[in-house]
Every structure is written in structure tokens, then in C-alpha cells.
Amino acid sequence: MKEFEIAPDPDDPRLTERVRGLDQDGRSVETSVTVERPLTLYLNSQEVVTMMTIGDYPDLLALGYLLNQNMLRPDDEVIGVDYDDDLDVVVVRTREETDFEEKLARRTVTSGCAQGTVFGDMMEKFESVVLDPAARLRTSWIYALSRKVNQRPSLYLTAGAIHGCVLAEGDRPLIYVEDVGRHNAIDKIAGFMYRHGLGARDKIFYTTGRLTSEMVIKCVQMEVPIVISRSGFTSSGVALARQAGLTLIGRAKGKRFLCLSGEDRLIYDAASADQEDEDPRYERKGARS
């Protein structure tokens, strides 16, 4: 795959709107804001959830959501994904019926923005996953990935109020998607991987959002051994990462980062003193999380 096989398109007119307001001095200003719309997901004939999303890649979001909630198994045969733009509905069809009704009854609302959800039996798969112990992370890759993502045109730089997630191989960002919820963005990546048969055992996951328990669980289920974030950690996210043997890097901004789990995968091949400070465009925007 080439770098940025999928990347944000800030020029897509469906994703932002121009609105007028007043600034701190009472002057009239016009600015771009991110569009947020509902997307109702059906699995076969049953409604599963309505998500708030920017609306791009609804097919990937639907597939990834079902996979990461264990409603859809990797060996299930998907015979179609139908999206109706007028109704804001996406339907995933499988050859055989599923048993997700029981899972819906155990749904728990989490701290993730935009109605993130996690299910009680997600930990069943989490505890059985063995992440590749041979995977390695060079510190030079951390710095290179951060620079490439920061320099890429994005909705964040255009309008803000959004999270980004990246699947990378070494220092090469392969897939870069954004959404109003970081869990939506990671689900889009999971959907892409499923659709294209892309393995994750040698990949790196980069996100602009917080490393919460939900994000850690999804990354482990996807079998990604290394996760990097511009933002910080929650205690549950760190504990689960250590339990799973996941390498967890946070607060990766400019020349700084912090590793709280899986430090044995780190190879220090680039001195922090030789790196540049944070891109000032991101500093002006403030924290994404």
C-alpha cells in the first residue's frame, strides 16, 4: 500500500459548513465548523445503533463497528453493505443470522464522545488475543509519523472538533481517517482492514484522541501491538494495555512522548534533542481530546 491510501479531504463540501459569529472583540467573523449527522446501523433486518458521524465511509464505519463489538466475526460472510444517503441508514447483510440481540441487552454507555459503546462480552476476545512479541517501534518512527500526520491537510486544521486515527507500517501512514468520535475513526480503520484482508500484527496505530479503556480494547481486538497518541491516558487504558502486552505511547507531541506499557518493544534510534518542537498550527488549535 502507498502512503495515505485513504486520507482526510477537507475540501469535501459535505463535511464542513461556514457559519457566522462574533469574536472576543465583538467583530463579525465567518468560520468553518465540522458537520455532524446521524447514521443508523442495521445488521440484517435488526436496528443496532444510531451513531453521530461526519458521514464519510459509512460502509467502513458499519463493518468496523460490528467487528469491534463482536457482533460480526472475521469469518462471517458479508454479502452486502447498503447505504442510503437520504435516510442516513447503512445495512450490513450476512449470509447467516447473528446472535447480537443478547449483546445489545448487555450494552454499557462509556465515556467516549458521540455515544461510544462497549459490550460486556468484549473482554472474552480481549483476553484470548496474543499480540506479536517480536513487533518493534523505533523512536524515529514516532517522530516521523507525528510530522507526516501533522503536515497532512485535514478537517482538524480546517474546522477542528474532530479526532484522527492512522494505521501505519513503520513510519509510513497507510490509512488516515477522521470523525467526531475517536471510536468512529478506529472503527473505520477496522472496517477497511476487514474488507481488504489487511493484517495488523506488524502495524502501528496512531490516534489524536485519549487512550481510554475502549480504545485499548479495540486496538487489542484488532491485534495491533503498538499504539501512539498525541493525547493522554486513563488508568483503565494503561492497566488493560499492560494486561494485554500492548505498547502504549502517549503525549507524543514534538520531541516528547511517554511510554506506559510494552516498553520492551522500543528501540531508541533517534535523540529527542535532535527533533523539532510541536507544529505551531496544532498548538494554536489546542488539544483535540
Rank of each mutant, 00 (worst) to 15 (best):
D76K: 04
G237P: 00
G21W: 05
D84I: 01
K218Q: 15
E96A: 10
L72T: 02
A62M: 04
H163L: 05
T31E: 15
M222R: 04
V166Q: 07
K253H: 03
F100H: 12
T234Y: 13
P58C: 07
Q46M: 13
E102T: 03
Q275K: 14
S28E: 14
M122T: 01
K2Y: 06
T117W: 12
T34Q: 13
Q115P: 05
R242I: 02
R93E: 10
A190D: 07
V166K: 09
S45L: 09
T208H: 08
D82E: 11
A114D: 10
E178K: 03
R147K: 15
V129M: 13
I267F: 13
M51S: 12
G237I: 02
V92H: 03
G197N: 04
Y65V: 01
V129R: 09
E3C: 03
V49Y: 15
Y268K: 12
F4V: 01
V130G: 14
W141P: 00
A185L: 04
L104F: 06
R195H: 08
W141R: 03
S261Q: 05
R106N: 13
Y282L: 15
R230S: 00
A273F: 15
G170P: 03
P153T: 03
R210F: 12
A287C: 14
D269L: 09
E283P: 04
D11C: 04
R251T: 00
V49R: 15
G286D: 05
M52P: 04
T208G: 12
V118K: 11
S235G: 04
K253L: 03
K218R: 15
T50Y: 14
V92L: 14
V149L: 14
R288K: 09
R195N: 04
E278P: 04
L66K: 06
L43S: 09
D84Q: 01
L60I: 07
D187I: 04
S146A: 12
D84V: 00
L63N: 06
Y156G: 06
R230T: 02
A62E: 00
L41M: 11
A273D: 15
G164L: 01
C219T: 14
E77Y: 08
E97I: 02
A270R: 11
W141A: 09
S146F: 06
K218G: 09
I226P: 05
L43A: 06
P74S: 11
G160A: 03
Y65N: 11
S229R: 03
I249S: 05
D9V: 01
T50F: 14
L145W: 10
T53G: 14
T53F: 15
A270I: 02
L174R: 06
R37T: 08
E47A: 13
K2T: 07
I79T: 09
V49D: 15
R284K: 14
A114H: 08
Q243H: 07
A270V: 05
G254C: 01
G262V: 02
A273P: 02
L266V: 05
V35H: 08
D171K: 02
K253P: 00
P225K: 00
G197D: 04
R147P: 06
V35N: 10
V35I: 11
V224R: 07
L198V: 06
A200H: 05
G254A: 01
L22Q: 10
Q24D: 13
V29F: 12
T31G: 12
M52C: 13
D85Q: 10
T94Y: 12
K148D: 07
V177E: 09
E97Q: 10
P38S: 09
D86N: 11
V238I: 14
G112W: 07
D179H: 02
F233T: 01
L66V: 04
T207H: 13
Q275N: 13
R265N: 07
